[in-house]
C-alpha cells in the first residue's frame, strides 16, 4: 500500500523495507528534472530529514525522508538519467529504499485518496 506525505513523497512498504519516490504531481510541478542527488547507502535519517535533492531548470528541491530508517539501496538510474523522474515517478523512478526503524510513523501519512484531496 502506498502512503503519501504533505511534501509530495510517496512510500511503499514491503516487509521492513520502504521504497520512496516523489509523486507524479510533484514531478509535474517541477517540470523537466535535470539532476538528482541521492544519499549514500548506509546512511540513516529521521522522519522529515533532508535526504536527497532534485533539480529542474526552474527549481531545486529537497526530498525529505518520509519515515525514519537506514538507506539500503539507491536508484542510480535516475542519477544517470534524471528525465526518468518525469517519465515514471510512481514506478521505475523510485529514489531510495529505506529499512524502517519505526513502522508506526506510517500511520501519520496520507493514503492515496487523502493525498489526491490534498493536492486538489
Amino acid at each position: 500500500m502506498k502512503k503519501f506525505t504533505e511534501d509530495h513523497e510517496w512510500v511503499s512498504v514491503d516487509g521492513d523495507i520502504a521504497t520512496v519516490g516523489i509523486t507524479a504531481h510533484a514531478a509535474e510541478q517541477l517540470g523537466d528534472v535535470v539532476f538528482v542527488e541521492l544519499p549514500d547507502v548506509g546512511k540513516s535519517f529521521g522522519q522529515k530529514d533532508e535526504m536527497a535533492v532534485v533539480e529542474s531548470v526552474k527549481a531545486a528541491s529537497d526530498v525529505y525522508a518520509p519515515i525514519s530508517g537506514e538507506i539500503v539501496e539507491v536508484n542510480n538510474d535516475i542519477v544517470d538519467e534524471p528525465a526518468k523522474v518525469n517519465d515514471d515517478p510512481d514506478g521505475a523512478a523510485w529514489f531510495v529504499k529505506i529499512k524502517l526503524s519505526d513502522a508506526s510513523e506510517l500511520d501519520k501519512l496520507m493514503d492515496e485518496a487523502a493525498y489526491k484531496e490534498f493536492v486538489k
Partner: peptide
C-alpha cells in the same frame, strides 16, 4: 545550473 544560485535556492 542556476538552481544552485540564490534567486532560486535562497537560503540553501
Amino acid at each position: 545550473l542556476s538552481t544552485r544560485e540564490q534567486h532560486i535556492r535562497r537560503d540553501k
